[in-house]
Design a protein around this nucleic acid. Structure first.
Lengths: 237, 237
DNA sequence: GCATGTTGGTGAATATAGTTCATTATTGGA
DNA sequence: TCCAATAATGAACTATATTCACCAACATGC
């Protein structure tokens, strides 16, 4: 019997190393099973410690999840600013923000799922570092819209926060099934389309009904007639 | 001592009545505390039954929540169709769908919170009646957009599902704080703005240089209309 | 190199739900 | 009035997260 070899072996690792081990194990299991179905026992086993050890480094299960996602978030968002700085033009910058967000969801659906479904719904989310990081980068999107206002591309009365919410809310809903493990989506195509809808939706160039002139009415009419003609041509061959 | 009066009194109510009592109690407590912090014991006490009785009528806690929200959903969505049928014009209909959704969130934030945070995240959501009801009414929004395509107001290549997701995702994000019990929002104003951004964002309008004068634009329009007329003559003649 | 205090690590015990089930007793129908 | 069916009961069970008293690895000072 190797009973002696099986006796408990308690090795003291450096604090950082032990935390990293636990977080790595937790990340794998949270991603595989989701927060609710992941058990502390399983995470402990994967990290080669017992349950109690986890509580020496993390307040509780929720805190462990938050720390795991914080670490990921920090690395992921670190190069945002410099990338945006290298892009010229409101529309291009806006598209980059949208594209980048879609890209992140596409490459890390499991982690995004945890952020969307578990983290944001917790009571003290608004005081968490992950909220601050998120805010920093959605603020960047709003800043780009505000630059568009200053340049005259957008009128000054557009509600910047609502635009932000339509972008990120739209992306979240549109990628819902993918994040749940069902289907796929085309990052570039969706980025183009969202950018287009938002840009045209808030642009100063297209006239609003209240500012309608005979010329813009004819313009709209021409566009409608073009569509109808196109449809007719398609149907009559 | 009134010990005798305190002995258990087991009364058999009609099945419908007992279920209604339990669901009413559950609705109150789920709304007050959220799903996670609501306990079966407390719901049972409020409904004047014991824990076990709840399991005679509902599979488990999650099923109880689903049944509560289903009941609410059915009543809430019942008059949707007829209202929309009474509204003329793509833009007005679209605005109604948006307004109505905002109105619902505004008047029942607690119940909406449960749908947003608890129900939609469950594994079998796609097979639940509440998903079907929801689909029925977001489909109506897409149908309105498709009517706009047929009328020529929108080009035929716009991604209808993405438009739907930007509407409902945008609303969900924009009402997030309110639903979490913080702040307020103006239903009519937000409805106007979202409608405006979406409508303009997907409308058929031609891109044109900023320096154009009314005369040159009319000239260009005339050429386009001539082409359309020619195409129509060719296809119908 | 040894004694020793600090503290990481252990794993059994505890707490807190949700869920089950054997038992009791109400009630509609024979 | 009696009886079978089953609603209702509430204690027992289960499954986890969390705590805690105890042990021992390691750093420090002598």
């Amino acid at each position: 019997m190797t009973a002696v070899a099986n006796k408990k072996r308690s090795v003291r690792l450096p604090r950082e190393r032990r935390m990293a081990d636990i977080m790595a194990a937790a990340r794998e299991i949270f991603c595989d099973k989701g927060y609710g179905d992941a058990s502390i026992t399983e995470i402990a086993a994967r990290a080669q410690v017992v349950e109690g050890t986890i509580y020496t480094y993390f307040e509780n299960k929720q805190d462990l999840l938050v720390k795991v996602l914080e670490q990921w978030y920090e690395g992921m968002l670190s190069d945002y600013d410099q990338h945006v700085a290298g892009i010229a033009g409101t529309r291009n910058r806006l598209r980059y923000m949208i594209w980048r967000h879609l890209k992140t969801v596409h490459s890390e659906p499991r982690l995004c799922r945890l952020v969307f479904r578990e983290i944001r719904t917790s009571a003290d989310y608004h005081h968490s570092p992950i909220f601050q990081l998120n805010k920093k980068y959605t603020d960047l999107t709003m800043q780009i819209v505000e630059e568009g206002i200053e340049s005259g591309e957008f009128p000054s009365d557009i509600p910047v926060k609502l635009v932000r919410d339509m972008v990120y809310g739209g992306i979240e809903h549109h990628t819902w099934n993918y994040v749940e493990g069902d289907g796929d989506f085309d990052v570039d195509r969706i980025a183009d389309t969202i950018t287009d809808i938002i840009y045209r939706g808030i642009s100063s160039t297209s006239q609003r009904p209240k500012e309608e002139t005979p010329v813009t009415r004819l313009d709209g009419l021409a566009a409608r007639l073009e569509n109808i003609a196109e449809a007719l041509e398609a149907s009559t061959g």
